[in-house]
Amino acid sequence: MPETILQAAQPYLNAIVTAIIGVLATMIIAGLKTMQVKANEWLDARTTAAQRETIHKVAGEAFALAQTAFKELGGQAKLEEALSYALKQLGSRGISVSAQEVQAAIEQAYLDYKNK
């Protein structure tokens, strides 16, 4: 008898779990978008327009490099490779920014890629 009840309730339980996962995913994406906006505002306040353009260009290059050259690595390892590349490139161009600022720009490049 209890097995019959569980079998009857299984489709409803699946629907509930799927809905919860959907809501959580939506909340995470909204949180990332909010973080992206705040990071851009902070970055904009501390750099010139030309520097911001260069930072975002290099971040896009770093993201593309990590996606293609380091496909076999996990997400965090790809981010570290992209961050390393971007910091070296920006340093060679005389742009001094924190790793956190560069990471925010790389993550924005990732979100822009995902939204296309």
Rank of each mutant, 00 (worst) to 15 (best):
Q89S: 09
N14I: 08
T34W: 11
Q103D: 09
T48W: 04
T18C: 01
A9F: 06
G74H: 02
M1L: 10
A105T: 04
A59C: 06
I28D: 12
T54H: 07
K114L: 13
E41F: 02
Y110I: 11
N40Y: 10
Q51I: 00
H56G: 00
D112L: 12
E80W: 01
A99T: 03
V58R: 00
V102I: 15
T18H: 07
S98N: 02
L32Q: 14
H56E: 13
A50Y: 01
A49Y: 08
G31Y: 08
Q100V: 14
E81R: 12
G94T: 06
A39M: 10
P11R: 02
L83S: 11
A66E: 01
A66F: 00
L90H: 06
H56L: 12
T48I: 06
F70T: 03
A39W: 06
A109M: 01
L83W: 04
Q100P: 00
G74S: 02
I95R: 04
I95D: 07
R52E: 07
V102G: 02
Y113E: 03
A104W: 05
L43I: 13
A15T: 06
I16F: 15
K114H: 05
L43W: 01
I55A: 00
A104P: 02
L65M: 13
K78H: 03
L79D: 05
Q36V: 04
T68H: 05
D112V: 08
A86T: 04
A15H: 04
A99R: 15
V102Q: 02
F63Q: 15
E107C: 05
V102H: 01
Q76D: 11
Q103R: 14
I106Y: 14
L32F: 14
A64L: 10
P11S: 08
Q89R: 10
A59K: 06
S98W: 02
I95K: 05
E80N: 12
E81F: 02
Q7S: 12
A105S: 12
G94W: 01
L73V: 01
N40V: 05
Q89N: 04
E101F: 06
I95F: 09
A62E: 02
I29V: 14
Q100E: 14
D44E: 10
E41S: 08
A19P: 00
L90Q: 05
K116V: 06
I55T: 00
L111N: 04
S96A: 13
A66K: 00
V58M: 05
A59M: 05
E53V: 06
N115S: 11
A15C: 02
S96Q: 13
Q51Y: 06
A99S: 14
